[in-house]
Design a protein around this nucleic acid. Structure first.
Lengths: 339, 339
DNA sequence: TTGAAAGCGCTAACAT
DNA sequence: ATGTTAGCGCTTTCAA
């Protein structure tokens, strides 16, 4: 392995000088600098991060701890946002997946300690509160897609409530008043937030909620739940007095609603309008007509989380530390105007 | 930071002895061992991997270099297979995403060198040959979902050809003889493999290929291509003499074919059978009827890659080093029997 | 079965 | 503007 000493020897300077060049410290004669750089090039020297970490105890590695996000197709954009933004920093990612298993999570934190990592992204697949029992060892940590309300941990979550509200508002603007809702699994925080927004949105528009038009899309324990959206949407749509628009808990649900409509020979959006949630593009741009849906700002959330963590490590305090990121409606072809 | 010396002091032994206990080396009095373990517990000692690496130059970190796989929903199962299997080893993953950008890829290798990582998984989103210009620095490397035919690098790829053959065979078994094919983007290696299998499969069954029944599903440069599957499938299906079954380049394509059928008021599988490729579950189990599709063995490929790399690092030579992993047909509800 | 000494590659602190 | 010394925490080597 080529070390700083080899470079120093070749350049005819001391190792300390090489270190200064490598780290861009000032006070070096341009001529010396050039000599050193040539030697580095010649020998193909790369700094040894382990040695550096040992000496400085400042690590160039950040930890990414996920429950299932990195291995599940939905929220991968969070990780993408983190990785892309990290490219503009000197940091690299050590990733550990816990499969939502507490023993593995504890092991993950130990791994991070062993590597002396500088900070941690704690990312969850579903928007949720982290259990108050979850321990966050003393490395600086930013929660992404989850929050710890009772503790003051920095976090970035999507504004599901605002998103839900905007969906209803848009539908009402387009002239819809007979609006149904196929829910997410009730156990999810997002289900609660989006659901409340649905009710509040209708109320704000002076529209009365019809209970039989609010149906579950997915039931059972998380990770072991099953779809019922197809059947429920089919029932909704086979009634002679059917809704003109269906709000879906997410895009997967919307896909099932499309299938239910097809099964009944109904057309989207002519016979029924559909709005999704997530903008999971494999679905939203893969189906015909393409889906109007509320986009979850996953990439931006990841990018923001990086900026926050980097700031915290640098000792700069972040402007705001518990961020709710706005969602934006993506208008495509699945909503008809009734005006 | 708690070091081995703190533990040694508390246990009343030398630091060397603590090291022996931590690393499970033999020749230690059980009594001494117990003392040391108690001290470790008390102090919450964790070994410092940086120091260990510096001394031994054997790293506990492996590199994961991906083009876009880790940030794209399709082949994430490869990464899942790698991560899950790594849990049974002492290794951790340092992940770098290159966005298929050569400069970033080079930087990735440098990062790996800086960290002295022990080996690398080189994972691609699409099954392809890696360019002969790609340099693989001297760390042990296993290619996943790609191969370097002219170089003898260990690799794990899916057997797309066998998968394609089995799809056609299955359809023929079910009594289909009027079979169409909606292709993948022609630029993909998988497109070539699956396409050849389609033709060979029909030939083996004594069925003549009808050129107008082989249509593109996606056209344009990779990453900038667009779907044409919907329109093409719609055209195929609106002819009075239409195929009884459509083989799709992948599940996304199958989704478009479903939409085309729905658009024409046709039913799957009664009016037309559909087979996908990939078993991308959001689609294959999300649509109605659920999709019969050829599963890509991504998780198993990841798991195998881990075993191969671990073996190589340990100096054991792997049984076989260029593996084609078989694909398995998942029978669900989208194929009708014509017998 | 245990310990002492040395050194991996780097940078902080202090010269010069 | 550059060099010297020391030591981060660990394991290798050798000795007891």
């Amino acid at each position: 392995m080529v070390s700083i000493k080899d470079v120093a020897a070749l350049a005819g300077v001391s190792d300390r000088t090489v270190s200064r060049v490598v780290n861009g410290e000032g006070l070096i004669r341009p001529q010396t600098k050039k000599k050193v750089q040539k030697a580095i090039e010649t020998l193909g020297y790369v700094p040894n991060q382990a040695a550096r970490l040992m000496r400085t105890s400042r690590s160039s590695v950040l930890g990414l701890i996920t429950d299932v996000v990195s291995t599940t197709p939905f929220s991968t954009d969070i990780v993408r946002g983190i990785q892309d933004t990290l490219d503009d920093t000197p940091y690299t990612l050590l990733t550990v997946n816990t499969s939502a298993n507490p023993a593995k999570e504890q092991r993950a934190w130990q791994i991070f300690r062993e590597h002396g990592i500088g900070g941690v992204f704690y990312v969850t697949m579903f928007h949720r509160h982290v259990s108050s029992k979850t321990e966050f060892p003393n490395a600086p940590t930013v929660l992404v897609n989850c929050s710890a309300p009772e503790r003051a941990l920095p976090s970035v979550v999507p504004d599901d409530y605002q998103g839900g509200l905007d969906v209803v508002r848009y539908l009402v603007e387009q002239g819809h008043r007979k609006i149904a809702y196929v829910m997410l699994n009730e156990l999810l925080l997002a289900a609660d937030l989006r659901g409340r927004a649905f009710f509040d949105g209708l109320a704000a528009a002076g529209i009365e909620v019809r209970k039989e038009w609010v149906v579950p899309g997915r039931v059972g324990a998380i990770f072991a739940d099953r779809f019922v959206a197809f059947e429920n949407a089919r029932r909704l749509l086979s009634s002679p007095d059917r809704p003109t628009a269906i709000v879906c808990g997410n895009d997967e649900t919307a896909l099932q609603v499309y299938c239910a409509a097809a099964d009944l020979g109904l057309r989207v959006p002519n016979d029924v309008s559909v709005v999704g949630f997530d903008d999971f593009q494999v679905i939203s741009t893969g189906i015909q007509p393409p889906l109007t849906t509320m986009a979850l700002p996953y990439r931006d959330m990841g990018a923001l989380a990086v900026r926050m963590l980097v700031d915290i490590i640098a000792g700069r305090s972040t402007a705001e530390s518990q961020v709710k990121y706005p969602c934006e409606l993506i208008r495509r072809g699945s909503v008809a105007s009734l005006k």
